[in-house]
């Protein structure tokens, strides 16, 4: 019995170590590669062997990469603000007011978030051309609402539904209008949910690729994922792995730090709505 439980414990900890190593290793290896230059890059090593920042210098002084980072920051921030603004009032109505067709509306909103983005690509392309937004950040901000808005509405609705009804009743008795109830009563309670959904929407917008690839056409309007995907060397044969890894680390570190700081909130946001059924 003793031996058996020892084996079980050992097996368990081996599983734990395997999970951690597999999860972290690719990122670790990208960091390791980003510090190598020249022929060192082509020697496989499992431990850090050099600490050379020249790849980072190459990327950060490059023609367009700093601009790409700024583009991504602007697009993601604006997308988050826009979707939170639209979602707060909408989710109040969906969570707290009984009206006919509410269930259907919720399902429709959820359905939009499940859209294959390629299905709207042709139509969006036409609309963005028509509005003169092609190759501007606004094309991306506009098109990103298709996946950030439904998600934000969804999570905020589930969150607001769980707020006690007494608070609202007290406000109504005091003669507060719905607008006052949202801004003065619910907003202070909503902060945790706003941070969570805002963060998730930010990550979604920061990582998006299909729209960013299709609706921008010049190097200076690209966002970071497109810039990294299209980063190429002097010829087809020589892919600049060092700078690619440096760029990857630069755009990933802030995300990883954010996610680790807010991990509890993020997990709560991801599971909201999902596991309640």
């Amino acid at each position: 019995m003793q031996a058996q439980s020892l084996i079980a414990r050992t097996g368990f900890y081996i599983a734990v170590v395997a999970i951690v190593v597999i999860a972290v290793f690719p990122f670790y290896y990208a960091i390791l590669t980003s510090f190598k230059t020249g022929t060192q890059i082509f020697e496989v090593t499992y431990w850090p062997t050099s600490f050379d920042l020249s790849n980072y210098r190459t990327v950060l002084t490059g023609r367009t990469f700093p601009q790409n980072v700024l583009n991504s920051l602007f697009v993601a921030t604006a997308t988050v603000c826009l979707s939170l603004l639209l979602a707060v009032t909408a989710s109040y109505a969906l969570a707290r007011v009984r009206f006919r067709g509410r269930g259907l509306l919720l399902i429709t909103i959820l359905a939009v978030s499940m859209f294959p983005q390629i299905a709207v690509l042709a139509g969006l392309f036409e609309l963005i051309r028509f509005l003169g937004l092609f190759n501007t950040p606004f094309a991306l901000i506009f098109s990103y609402t298709i996946f950030t808005l439904p998600f934000t509405v969804w999570v905020l609705t589930t969150f607001m539904r769980d707020l006690p009804v007494e608070i609202e009743e007290a406000a109504i008795v005091d003669g507060a209008t719905p607008w006052v109830i949202i801004t003065k009563v619910f907003m202070p309670l909503l902060w945790p949910a706003l941070v969570t959904t805002g963060l998730l929407a930010f990550i979604g917008a920061w990582n998006e690729f299909l729209f960013a690839l299709t609706f921008t056409s010049s190097e200076t309007t690209r966002t970071v994922p497109v810039a990294i995907a299209l980063l190429s060397g002097a010829s087809d044969k020589e892919i600049p792995w060092g700078p690619i890894m440096a760029a990857s680390v630069i755009v990933t570190v802030p995300l990883v730090v954010l996610v680790l700081i807010f991990q509890r909130k993020i997990v709560a946001g991801l599971t909201a709505g999902g596991v309640k059924g």
């Binding site: 990122f27 690729f209 994922p225 890894m245 991990q263």
Partner: peptide
């Protein structure tokens, strides 16, 4: 915390890595 890292990495970046 460790298993959140793959999730947080942009798809394009993980594809390149």
């Amino acid at each position: 915390a460790a298993i959140l890292i793959p999730w947080a990495i942009p798809t394009i970046v993980s594809a390149k890595m």
